[in-house]
Amino acid sequence: MSVLAEVSGNVTAIGYGLAAIGPGIGVGIIFGQGVQAIARQPEAYGLIRQNMLLGFVLTEALALIGLVAPFLFSNL
């Protein structure tokens, strides 16, 4: 069987690149919607900011799990 395409070099770098797509989109959505919500209701700033931070922390955690996933899976 002939090889159509091949990947050389460190595959974990590609893995992290793929893993960073989702959190990137997520952080964009969180802050975009958060800014929109603050613009619509400036008086609810505290509540919106609190929930925005919670969402940001959870999403950023996913991106950082992607960063250590190669070490995790090489260990198991």
Partner: peptide, 25 residues
């Protein structure tokens, strides 16, 4: 063993997330 490294990583992420949430919100 080989289980404590993933457990510790995820636990640390949770604790740090809790700290950041409490501190900045």
């Amino acid at each position: 063993t080989s289980a404590f490294f993933p457990i510790g990583t995820v636990l640390g992420l949770m604790l740090a997330g809790y700290l950041a949430y409490r501190k900045f919100s």
